[in-house]
Design a protein around this nucleic acid. Sequence first.
DNA 1: GGCGTCACGGTTGAC
DNA 2: TCGTCAACCGTGACG
Length: 306
Amino acid sequence: MTDLYNLEIILATLCIQNLYILLTEYFLSISEHQTYGEVNQLGGVFVNGRPLPNAIRLRIVELAQLGVRPCDISRQLRVSHGCVSKILARYNETGSILPGAIGGSKPRVTTPNVVKHIKVYKDRDPGIFAWEIRDKLLADGVCDKYNVPSVSSISRILRNKIGGSTGSSGNSSPGTSPPQQFDSKPISGSMHPPTAPIYNQFYPYTCPPPSMGMHGSFPSPQMPPQGHALPMNYKPPVSSCVSPCMMRAWPSSHSVTDILAFSRQPMPGQPAPMPSHDNMGGIAQTYNMSNYYGMKPGMSPMYLQS
DNA sequence: GGCGTCACGGTTGAC
DNA sequence: TCGTCAACCGTGACG
């Protein structure tokens, strides 16, 4: 009985492994025909809109500290001199090689505390104007000049959250979200979470190159230094059953949509595409980076991290 | 020739 | 689920 049970487990495992292999081969076959990377004038490969890999950024700083001129760094690493200049300027200013936060929205100013105070002001003086509330928020120190809501925001709060809570319950329009949504988001001048590694679907940043960590002054891609600009696209590890290289952030919904739109186009001589990547678990993340990058023959592989 | 700056087209993630 | 918006990115051109 136990042997039969074990046999079933083995068979199930084999089925999963075969499925895994098939799906992996499928994505690799797709990626061979896709071109995501672009080539700059120096022959280097880059992904438009995405930061350079940390290894390259680190190398730029290292070479600069060795006294190599920026123009030589640019040529050697095949990165535009504007980019080298920007990275070195950022490093000199912040001490970090990490790129800034990409995406996201400004921190919200209509925190529960602000709404509560507005409600108090309104209760005390039902005829109070929005601009008066704004002044009182500043005067009472509830907000400062950087995060005080606009008059229109206060009017909206009065209309939707305070007025709506008494007269128009069930209002589901934007701006009437329950206060719980703010509870876990401390409002500050920073848009960033306390700590955040940096990675995206093109660069396996969670796999630091061998040179990483050898310099105390250089931040680890996995553990950015405190007090430095951090990306908002941080996603804490949710699984420990995959290799660190696979514990990367998934593409955004926009990227997934774009990729799907592309991959659904049948390749010449290729069978019709399989179902969307959404259902494929982490398999797509096992891409060989040269495939993922859509490397063309003759391209410099320098951006590829292993 | 080297370098700083900026417009541009792109990606990203919160809303 | 999708669109919008505002942040960022690197490139390439200009001075």
